[in-house]
């Protein structure tokens, strides 16, 4: 699925990716070292860690999108960093578990 086509209940896109990249799956975790050990390129990162380090890790691992769960706010510096790296940023009003379920359904996993 294209990053900018991602849509499900409670999900808001706050930073679209400039060139449309492909989401192949997702990885849900708040431990960035765990993300660095296991996220595969193309997977979106579902997390409640809404700060710049998350963007740094997503960039390193080749994640095309970050979904901040449970209505966590993405601050301007986070969005700026994501835009620079062409990473789409979404905010989900729902819990990480619920967001993960809806995300999987949207992707048809």
């Amino acid at each position: 699925m294209k990053t900018n086509e991602l849509k499900f209940d409670g999900l808001d896109c706050v930073q679209p990716a400039s060139s449309d990249s492909e989401i192949t799956g997702g990885y849900t975790s708040d431990l960035l070292s765990d993300v660095m050990a296991h996220l595969k390129e193309g997977e979106a990162l579902l997390t409640i860690q809404a700060h710049k380090n998350t963007v740094a890790v997503a960039t390193l691992m080749g994640a095309p999108a970050i979904i901040f769960c449970h209505g966590r706010i993405a601050t301007a510096d986070v969005l700026e960093a994501a835009a620079k790296e062409n990473i789409a940023v979404f905010i989900s009003a729902n819990s990480q578990f619920e967001t993960t379920c809806r995300f999987a359904k949207a992707l048809g996993i």
Partner: peptide
């Protein structure tokens, strides 16, 4: 709280 301290840094780097 910053998302670090999972105890995977050094093992990741070594791997």
């Amino acid at each position: 709280s910053q998302g670090f301290g999972a105890g995977m840094g050094l093992p990741n780097a070594k791997r």
